[in-house]
Design a protein around this nucleic acid. Structure first.
Lengths: 203, 203
DNA sequence: TTCTTTCTTGAGTGACTACTCAAGAAATGA
DNA sequence: TCATTTCTTGAGTAGTCACTCAAGAAAGAA
């Protein structure tokens, strides 16, 4: 059990940093979406040739799946989960989710909005699985929202007549709308005002 | 001034109904988006050959622009403008906009959501103008929202400290989020609940 | 009927798509 | 040193993309 966790690699070492390449691919997919980003665009941005890309990542679809996982580990992709985990009250969690979305989605240091929300909106039938994959991620997020609100009602934070399913749908709607607004040019100030209005719906 | 409004057309008459063809094209663009819909898909759905399509509509981009205008004259594309024009109070207008969006966006008789919101989300650089065109339409709608709310404040329907710009951004966010939710499978009942929660933000 | 006009048809265009592969280069192990 | 392994390179594949065009067909006008 004294196995080396990183045994010395045989053969020629890769000439590119896998994480840097993934970051470059993420930016492109985030900006343009899955189908509108060509493998030629990707190889140019990642600084590698097609053969290296296919050897390292499989095919375009596999690369995109890895990009989505990579995105989910960045602050932009993980803030909602972190808020649900770290905040003591449901209100604090959802207020934080909306406020952070308002600050992060229009941040000019990366493409606007959320990759999971916008990267596979327009796909041809051959890539329908990619669209379904992101939709599943969004809907599982919706269920996380609902579970947290259900707990809040059990704990008495929400009144007994509050509707966790409806509230979850409402907050998901606002978050997704804010992502779209950010892509349309809304500023952090704009989205901050939207957030405060949206929070008025809290029971 | 007794000119015939529709002078007899010379030459071979078109073998297809222009409006029916446009409706078929609208459905496809609405479902899949601009780039993910190929000219081959369009000719198949419209029941015509490429030559006829190009003769009748110009190129793909021109066809899409005509589709967007056509969409804007359908109930799904015109309900917001109608509500703003027909309702006496701003609250009635925005309540009607959200309630109609909740009923229309998931209606199974047509593709889910709003074409203007979702048909040009993912485009490659060569089609950036198409994306900009729809974004302009969305942003001009946002300004219509804001103008109506500004009037409401002047009329005393809204308190002096209400923020028309912020409210317009909020309602645009909710509408766009509802379109996305409908595409993700939300039902009319789901969106109706979202609507009633969203309206709680009204000052 | 014949001319003119307009539309349809089918076969095509070059450019781009995702993807592949043989050959060579650069590392380790023996 | 030499074999083995892994990665890179550049030239390539078949298929699809938006789009075109000459030839023929179908209408009105003369």
């Amino acid at each position: 059990m004294t196995e080396n966790p990183t045994p010395p690699r045989r053969g020629r070492p890769p000439a590119f940093d896998r994480d840097e390449a993934l970051t470059a691919a993420t930016r492109l997919f985030w900006e343009r979406g899955y189908e509108a980003t060509s493998v030629a665009d990707l190889t140019a941005a990642m600084g590698i040739r097609p053969g290296s890309l296919y050897a390292a990542f499989g095919d375009k679809k596999s690369l995109f799946e890895e990009v989505v996982r990579h995105y989910g580990r960045t602050p932009v992709g993980a803030f909602a989960g972190a808020a649900l985990r770290e905040e003591a009250s449901a209100y604090a969690a959802f207020a934080r989710i909306l406020r952070e979305a308002a600050a992060i989605y229009p941040d000019p240091s990366h493409p606007a909005g959320c990759l999971v929300i916008s990267a596979a909106t327009n796909v041809s039938p051959q890539d329908i699985e990619v669209q379904a994959h992101l939709r599943d991620l969004r809907n599982s997020n919706l269920r996380l929202f609902e579970a947290r609100l259900r707990t809040a009602r059990q704990d008495g934070e929400l009144p007994p007549d509050a509707d966790p399913h409806a509230l979850a749908g409402y907050f998901a709607t606002v978050v997704q709308g804010m992502s779209q607004q950010a892509r349309d040019g809304a500023t952090a100030a704009d989205l901050a005002r939207t957030t405060e209005l949206a929070l008025r719906a809290w029971p």
